[in-house]
Amino acid sequence: MSRLGNFSTLGNRLYSGETAVEVVGRRKRWFASFGIVLLLAVLGLGVRGLHFSVDFTGGSVLTVPTQSLSTTEATSIAVNNGVSAPVVQQLTVTTGGAGHEVTVTTPVISATTENTLKADLAKAAGISVNSITVQTVGASWGHQVSKDAIEALIVFLVLVTIYLAIFFEWQMAVAALASLLNVIVITVGVYAWSGLEVSPATVTGFLTILGYAIYDAVVVFDKIRENRKQFVDTDRLSYNRAANLAVNQTLMRSLNTSLIAVIPVIALMIGGVLSEAVVLQDIALALFVGIAAGTVSSILLAAPLLVWIKERNPSVAAHTAKMRAKAKKEAARAASGAEDAQVQQAVPVGAPDPGPVGAGTIKIAGRVPAPGSGTPQREVQPRGNQRPQPRSNKKKR
Score class of each variant (00 low, 15 high):
residue 34 F to Q: 00
residue 358 G to Q: 14
residue 390 P to N: 00
residue 94 T to A: 13
residue 67 Q to G: 12
residue 377 Q to E: 14
residue 270 I to K: 07
residue 337 G to I: 13
residue 276 E to R: 14
residue 360 G to I: 05
residue 153 L to E: 04
residue 329 K to Q: 11
residue 276 E to W: 07
residue 239 Y to S: 10
residue 188 V to C: 06
residue 39 L to T: 00
residue 263 I to V: 15
residue 249 Q to F: 02
residue 100 H to T: 15
residue 326 K to I: 05
residue 300 L to P: 00
residue 4 L to E: 09
residue 95 T to D: 14
residue 23 V to M: 11
residue 255 L to G: 03
residue 4 L to R: 11
residue 60 S to C: 08
residue 218 V to M: 06
residue 98 A to Y: 02
residue 39 L to A: 03
residue 184 I to E: 04
residue 160 V to F: 07
residue 207 L to G: 10
residue 193 W to I: 01
residue 238 S to D: 04
residue 23 V to Q: 09
residue 66 T to N: 02
residue 255 L to D: 05
residue 236 R to H: 07
residue 345 Q to Y: 09
residue 252 M to N: 12
residue 235 D to K: 05
residue 315 S to E: 15
residue 293 A to R: 00
residue 37 V to C: 00
residue 268 L to Q: 09
residue 147 K to R: 13
residue 379 E to W: 13
residue 242 A to S: 12
residue 104 V to L: 08
residue 91 L to K: 12
residue 304 P to H: 01
residue 285 L to E: 06
residue 64 V to F: 04
residue 225 R to V: 07
residue 134 V to R: 11
residue 13 R to M: 08
residue 186 I to T: 00
residue 196 L to C: 08
residue 65 P to I: 08
residue 195 G to M: 10
residue 153 L to C: 03
residue 34 F to I: 00
residue 393 N to P: 14
residue 43 L to V: 13
residue 228 R to E: 14
residue 155 V to I: 15
residue 379 E to I: 13
residue 198 V to Y: 02
residue 14 L to Y: 07
residue 283 I to Q: 07
residue 90 Q to D: 11
residue 151 E to L: 15
residue 378 R to S: 11
residue 258 S to Y: 02
residue 83 V to Q: 02
residue 344 Q to H: 15
residue 346 A to D: 10
residue 227 N to R: 06
residue 173 A to D: 04
residue 302 A to W: 01
